[in-house]
């Protein structure tokens, strides 16, 4: 069966600009990700997991080479069109200004609303579905500041779901979740990859969860960036190094 290629990185260098200086983090990256992929991204702190995810959705510039989303370079997309392709969940905290959980999930539908941000019936249905899928129905009208870290994380994930994108990027989404919620989250993501054929990339330090649920692992070390299958993990030197001998 032919799988559709969602993301292609061709000889790319990724990084960020600080004070006018270009700081490359990842070099010579060549990767492809397909629909239905559930990729776990592993690597020690500061190795470039967030940089990779942010570059994929255009939040950071591509320093060299090109990233293609559905065959088109990221830089060629109108922002609103890119927003319909890729949704991202970051580690940053937001809140205040009377923002409720529902408001944040509703923001996921922004690429589809008119310029006055009016929510039509179908928009509201999609938002409700996303809220239900992430199990935050009872908390949807709470202020963001009042949510626990775990509920906040689920809210942002619901926002990404409401964006209805074929690609979902999640930066350490399991960091603040309790044990059961972590498993719930990974089961949900696996379902999205398997049933809705989404291409899901998730970075995490929960190696056992990644081994259990993901279809492939992207192992990022200072020397190389390699996509391996889960079964190879136990014999992969870079992966074992990240595990620190505890895997």
């Amino acid at each position: 069966m032919d799988k559709k290629e969602r993301i292609l990185l061709k000889d790319t260098a990724l990084g960020y600009k600080k004070n006018g200086q270009i700081i490359p983090v990842l070099k010579n990256v060549n990767l492809s990700f397909y629909e239905g992929d559930f990729i776990g991204i592993v690597g020690i702190n500061g190795v470039g997991k967030s940089t990779l995810l942010k570059s994929l959705c255009g939040l950071l510039p591509v320093l060299q080479g090109e990233i293609f989303i559905d065959q088109y370079p990221v830089s060629a997309f109108l922002l609103n069109e890119l927003a319909k392709k890729i949704a991202i969940v970051l580690t940053e905290k937001i809140g205040g200004f009377n923002l409720t959980a529902y408001d944040v999930v509703a923001a996921g539908q922004m690429p589809y609303t008119n310029s006055f941000n009016r929510l039509e019936k179908e928009n509201i249905n999609i938002i409700d579905q996303a809220i239900k899928a992430c199990g935050i129905s009872q908390h949807q009208h709470k202020l963001l500041n009042e949510l626990s870290d775990g509920l906040f994380q689920k809210t942002i994930i619901a926002k990404a779901l409401a964006q209805q994108t074929p690609i979902m990027l999640l930066d350490e989404p399991s960091a603040f979740l309790d044990y059961a919620s972590k498993h719930d989250l990974f089961i949900l993501l696996k379902k999205l990859a398997d049933e809705e054929r989404k291409c899901v990339l998730v970075s995490s330090h929960d190696l056992d969860l990644l081994l259990k649920y993901c279809s492939k692992l992207l192992v990022i070390s200072n020397i190389s960036t390699a996509l391996i299958s889960v079964s190879e993990a136990k014999t992969n030197k870079a992966f074992l190094e990240i595990g620190g001998g505890f895997i």
């Binding site: 942010k54 959705c57 255009g58 939040l59 922002l79 609103n80 069109e81 890119l82 927003a83 319909k84 890729i86 949704a87 991202i88 970051l90 940053e92 937001i94 205040g96 200004f97 923002l99 944040v104 923001a107 996921g108 922004m110 690429p111 926002k159 964006q163």
Partner: peptide, 13 residues
């Protein structure tokens, strides 16, 4: 209100 990154990710320049 969502901050720079999320605003950009939902299609706002």
């Amino acid at each position: 209100l969502l901050g720079e990154n999320y605003a950009q990710n939902v299609g706002i320049n």
